[in-house]
């Protein structure tokens, strides 16, 4: 699946996007985050405080329980500040 990072999550992970093949049994956003945290100290820092991280799966807002599967586009970002 494709994982995207925006704003300070991009700065902390050091990348805008990456292709991820999560371990078997990864079926939710929460489980995906647990895997991403193991990839680098930057990833661990990005996901340190989940209350300030928002997620979208295939461009729709989701939560920790939202299902994810191969081929999905999963984006992580802080609360939005447009307008």
């Amino acid at each position: 699946m494709k994982v995207l990072y925006f704003a300070w999550l991009k700065a902390k992970t050091g990348m805008a996007e990456e292709d991820i093949a999560p371990p078997a049994g990864t079926t939710t956003v929460g489980q995906l985050i647990e895997h991403l945290k193991t990839l680098s100290p930057g990833h661990a820092a990005a996901f340190e405080t989940l209350s300030v991280v928002r997620v979208a799966v295939n461009q729709d807002y989701g939560g920790l329980d939202t299902p994810v599967k191969a081929g999905d586009e999963v984006a992580f970002f802080p609360p939005v500040t447009g307008g």
Binding site: A7, V80, T81, G82
Partner: peptide, 27 residues
């Protein structure tokens, strides 16, 4: 339109000041 846009449209602002750059926090 503007109220919902501010909390739902995926935009993020980083402010450039003399003290450096800072991501704007949601209010």
């Amino acid at each position: 339109l503007i109220d919902w846009l501010k909390t739902k449209a995926p935009f993020w602002k980083v402010e450039h000041t003399q003290e450096g750059d800072a991501w704007v926090e949601a209010r």
